[in-house]
Design a protein around this nucleic acid. Structure first.
Length: 277
DNA sequence: ACTCAGGCTACGA
DNA sequence: TCGTAGCCTGAG
């Protein structure tokens, strides 16, 4: 349930909305943990949120902003208890769900997601965050103490030398190529939304620096294609470990992408805590 | 100094 | 078509 109060939006979590799990599973790069919760920027807005008494509270957010942005961003109309029920039919996944329950796959801005995951290739999370932060500071709009993610049209107009300030190395030419071709209309990010998943994947990989993995991340975290199953090194190792060589993610259909996130979060947790699977 | 990090392109066989 | 070197950079 959702309640609109003077000081913000109150969402009943029911164990199916954890800020920690949602923001720290590698799907987004612009939210930071604060003393009381999390704070970050999406769709040109700053958001502070925290958990209290079984609610997730979006501080200072009104009904209109919730409906226009955050409801969709957190995919709050999706019933995760149904998703989890289906995924738990698989024994390995049942364990992963046990650790990852409350993680929600976000629906972020398409361009921001694509650009962020171009930056992510052969890179680690702290550095990805640092590059994106510099990108926003230099080319985004000042929205009152914070910076929005720069618009495609802005990046399309940036020169190669000028972009070096973000220190993304060989990825910079990919970013520029993508921005220019998207800005010109040659590649239409919104059009991909109406395609079937395999077609959309092929479409995005026409961009330089966008292979299957980056396309899957963009489609999962920016489009809501929940069948996209990005295979990074962690997932490859985990899949090998639990399922062996002949794994087919279609066993999780139509929620392969959510399963991927659960598995990823679960493996990282094990790595952090030094437990064995 | 050297490896590694949540891939991709370009090139060779 | 398949395999892999090289790529920018910064942290450990």
């Amino acid at each position: 349930m959702v309640y609109f109060k003077n000081d913000g939006v109150y969402i009943t979590a029911d164990g199916l909305f954890s800020l920690e799990k949602t923001f720290l599973c590698g799907q987004c790069f612009r939210f930071e943990k604060k003393d009381s919760g999390f704070s970050g920027i999406a769709f040109g807005r700053q958001l502070s949120l925290f958990e209290k008494d079984g609610f997730v509270i979006l501080r200072g957010v009104g009904e209109r902003e919730y409906d226009e942005i955050w409801k969709n961003y957190f995919d709050l109309e999706r019933d995760y208890s149904e998703v989890n029920k289906l995924l738990c039919r698989d024994k390995v996944m049942a364990r992963a769900v046990g650790s990852s329950k409350g993680l929600r796959v976000l629906r972020q801005d398409k361009w921001e997601t694509l650009c962020s995951f171009i930056i992510s290739q052969n890179n680690n999370i702290p550095r990805i965050k640092s590059i994106i932060s510099t990108l926003c500071r230099n080319f985004g709009n000042d929205i009152g103490g914070a910076f929005s993610f720069p618009d495609v049209s802005v990046i399309a107009g940036v020169g190669e030398e000028e972009l070096k300030v973000i220190r993304a190395g060989f990825r910079e030419k990919y970013i520029l190529d993508a921005a220019r071709r998207i800005n010109s209309g040659e590649i239409d990010l919104d059009a991909a939304e109406k395609m079937e998943y395999p077609e959309a994947r092929e479409y995005l990989t026409r961009l330089k620096g966008v292979g299957g993995k980056v396309a899957d991340c963009a489609l999962l975290f920016g489009y809501g294609f929940l069948e996209a199953f990005p295979k990074d090194v962690w997932i490859k190792k985990a899949v090998e470990k639990y399922y062996g060589d002949n794994f087919d993610e279609s066993i999780f259909s139509p929620y392969g992408g959510i399963a991927q996130q659960y598995l990823y979060y679960y493996e990282r947790l094990i790595a952090k805590n030094g437990k064995t699977g």
